[in-house]
Amino acid sequence: MLRRARRFLEFPFLPEVVAILTAFLLGLLVLFFTGYPPLRAFSALFRGAFGSRNAFGQTLTQATPILFTSLSFLLSFRAGIFNIGIEGQLLMGAFVAALLGTMIRSLPLPLHLPLALLGGGLGGALWALIPALIKTYLGAHEVITTMMMSYIASYLTSYFVNYPFKAPGWVAQTNPVQPTALLPRILPPTQLSLAFPLALVFSVLVFYFLFRTYLGFQVRAVGLNPEVAENRGISVASRQILAFLLSGFVAGIGGAGEVLGVHGKFVDGFSPGYGWDGIAVSLVGRLHPLGCILASLLFGMLRAGGMTMARVTKVPLDLSLIIQALVILLIAAPRLIRIFILRKRGL
């Protein structure tokens, strides 16, 4: 009996499972005390997330951008960098992709689409390069600089689509992307596009990079103990810049995926904070690419289900955001605090 109890306690994902169950339970309580019918709301939430082909497509669609951004955060974090400007890198990537998608005409799809995607990635990478260089050469901490760059990107892209690149009409958005640059939809009528499988491919690539290549190994060494890495001849600055670039690249691809896969253009304010969610998702996913896949599915489900729930019951979308916040509070926050304390103590 005791043996069995102990084995249960050693189940590796116990903290996550307990936290998620607790979050849902607390969510139920919130519903109960605010006078909504808890069970009806929850069944709507689950139906909205998995209940049908379309619901499932919706969940995957919602999971896609946060899978990209969580991978982005993971890449920087593994190098000991705290890139919290992913939102900005995502926006810049999205905007470059939109530009390439709209401006270039008469290029065949096999060329145009990859070009637009790649442009998106490079846009994000370039935006990450600036804080990377500032950190290396001026020593300013990336938490400040990436955040500032993020605001700049947000206002800058907003300005672009409100003025110089605005499509005719009332809405602040660019012209539609050429059909040759659109990511094909894979589960019509949902918005699920090739961006999702692409995100899965990127998860595997990130895994491969970190755990199977020597550069990834060096990045991890730098992240865990820069002094030892330096002592073994690994250039800390260059590996951190590399991680920054890759992190920005992945975030940029994430943004491009939204433009080319979901909206078909750059719409002002299209991101409800995917970049910020990525940080939490990454931590819930234990800073591991495969964990990120699972965690982003969870968050995607909460978003997709929450929207359905808001539509069929009167429970606002905020409920699923509350659950999401609880998951973050119960898993990600303690983890982050632990990591910081250990770092402070130099362990």
Binding site: Y214, L224, E227, R232
Partner: peptide, 24 residues
């Protein structure tokens, strides 16, 4: 502080500094 990375495995610590060249 300078010798071994505690959160790396024995193998990872042994290869540290030689990882970027053949045969590793």
């Amino acid at each position: 502080r300078r010798g071994a990375i505690l959160d790396f495995t024995v193998m990872e610590n042994l290869m540290l500094g030689f990882e970027d060249e053949p045969p590793l």
